[in-house]
Design a protein around this nucleic acid. Structure first.
Lengths: 339, 339
DNA sequence: CGCCGGAATGTTTCCGGCAACATCTCTTGG
DNA sequence: CCAAGAGATGTTGCCGGAAACATTCCGGCG
């Protein structure tokens, strides 16, 4: 399970390289920075020395003088959740493509005291910028209260903001689909209220219900977990108040399905269930889940792009709307009227 | 969705603080380092200036002189997988408790060329150590080929190594459970062969089969995904060759269950299915999954501890064996003989 | 053949913090 | 009352690299 490498010798510096090549350290720097005016012969010698000594510039020292680093930090949390997780993945790629190193600092939401501390710690490095991938109010607050001396881009929630165009309103598609199947009575199992994304989904749900002329038979607060979906159904009266259950995410939907099964309701014959996120597993639930596919990776990319624009003092590029896509599978079916 | 903060003024340095307090910068350093011999009055003035200016030491500059930083980097990949993900969580906590900042660099396994590059990039900073959380051979190789000048701890796979005590052999418990239920014929759906953890599980499976006198009716290669579990079953002949299916992880088991359902086999009445990992969702599958609970978080903690010991040149603490725990739920039941 | 000017290379200083060493300022003992 | 010594604070140089500035080299031209 383990292996180590002894080599503890200090890394070579430009001075070492310069000495080995018989030039001044400035020449080494020039080579490194791609300066053209170096005699081929000299260039060769220096390059050789660099190779020989396995020289690698010390980025700390570099950013100390230049005052700018190519490092950006992403503050995140709950990377277990699909959303944050994939956003990070996208951000990581985008950063790398732009020549930046993105490193991730995971905040411990369960331990609020440490949030500020972690942020503080991160800021002690020379950073080009900070990408705050915050999904909960707690983290958002902590971020807003911190004093950053570097560009900051705060992406709250992996959802569209309140003022986003209606087209981005994914739950409308979900409820539209249910309405098409003849459903009138629906129940929403929401995400944790301190998550922006959860609130947005709930709001979208409520708006869609109105717009489509459906009846919402309740919003039950969940917490993204399967357990909360299970318990939501368990808390319902014997006679189900709805024919369709709209869960805030796929995990919750999973719990909903199990609870429904246990109470003798077949999905989708008796009741329909939907999720949000389209996690890789959703297609393999029993039955496969009708859900909303969100492009988290793209959102991560967009966020990095926004941050980079701020770093470079350029006008931020417009973020193309990322339209959620309705994925219809077998957890939804034609309504079967309530008893 | 966004907010920015303008403040781009350069952060205060010890010199700024010194000037503001009317002392030399050395005095500021002394205060920072907890040196006792400072007159209360002076101390007060300096502390005031620090507060006033919002001074934060520049860790880059610091590690430049001290030659040691309190930063460790975790190289990881596929953080979407539960295992790596939770290991990271544990590592993060352990590092923080030890006063280190752990930052995470996600390697892109799908793009091997970038692995070396990312590692290289990370090494250009002053690092106290590197924690390589590698689960696949590709990454392991890349890590082994890189030249680190800092302590390295390579944790391969989130499983016990080949020479670990038999007690750690979790699949024995799983198969023992199946044997107790009367199952004789079993099939294993493995993880991707380039994952150490997957190979270990397969080996454990095979050993357990022999030890318990069962009959393995095949090992089908999967890739951790639900899809691979689904396809594994789909590839089987009409007459199932086994009464129990041992999946390499929970996701795979999910796919297995769906495929089995679709072919008209009820779980667990007709066939039994097991997983590994005990993801939070496993308890809410339909039916809830019998699986093996692994303590990933502890493994992450252990790894950090090992690394820190190397950094400090101390003898590494013994890693307590993390015994997997069999969680029996409803996806397994008494055998029902093959037709 | 010497001078000029650009190309190639070298020297110095600074970034922010730290540590070794130097200096100053008291208190105290002879 | 002065010197010694401890305590408090200041000065200097260095870490690795970058940039401004300085110098050397060289060929061409008058």
């Amino acid at each position: 399970m383990t292996e180590t490498q002894p080599s503890v010798e200090r890394p070579a510096t430009i001075y070492d390289v310069a000495r080995a090549a018989g030039v001044s350290h400035a020449t080494v720097t020039r080579l490194l920075k791609g300066y053209a005016g170096i005699r081929p012969e000299t260039r060769e010698r220096v390059a050789g020395a660099i190779r020989e000594l396995g020289y690698r510039p010390n980025l700390n020292a570099r950013s100390l003088t230049t005052g700018r680093s190519h490092r950006i930090v992403a503050l995140t949390h709950e990377i277990t959740q699909v959303g944050p997780n994939k956003i990070l993945e996208g951000a990581n790629l985008a950063a790398r493509d732009a020549g930046y190193l993105l490193d991730v600092i995971t905040l411990d939401v369960h331990n609020p005291a440490t949030i500020g501390e972690s942020i503080d710690r991160a800021l002690q490095f020379d950073l080009a910028g900070v990408l705050a991938l915050s999904s909960t109010d707690e983290v958002t607050n902590a971020v807003e209260n911190a004093t950053f001396r570097v560009p900051l881009y705060l992406a709250t929630g992996h959802d569209k903001s309140a003022d986003s165009p209606p087209a981005a309103n994914g739950l409308l598609a979900v409820l539209g689909h249910l309405a098409d199947l003849g459903h009138r009575d629906v129940v929403h199992i929401s995400g944790p209220p301190d998550w922006v994304g959860a609130r947005n989904r709930t709001r979208e749900y409520e708006a869609a219900v109105v717009q489509l002329g459906l009846r919402s038979r309740g919003v039950i607060h969940g917490d993204w977990s399967s357990r909360s979906g299970y318990e939501a159904i368990a808390s319902l009266p014997e006679e189900l108040p709805a024919t369709a259950f709209v869960a805030a995410n796929d995990q919750t939907a999973l719990g909903v399905i199990l609870a429904l099964n246990e109470r003798g309701h077949r999905v989708p014959d008796d009741v329909s269930v939907t999720g949000v996120d389209d996690t890789p597993e959703a297609a393999y639930f029993s039955p496969p889940l009708t859900t909303l596919r969100l492009d988290f990776t793209a959102q991560g990319r967009d966020a990095v792009q926004q941050l980079l624009a701020r770093i470079d003092g350029v006008a931020p590029p417009p973020t193309p709307p990322r339209l959620p896509e309705l994925i219809v599978r077998r957890s939804t079916g034609p309504v079967r009227p309530l008893a």
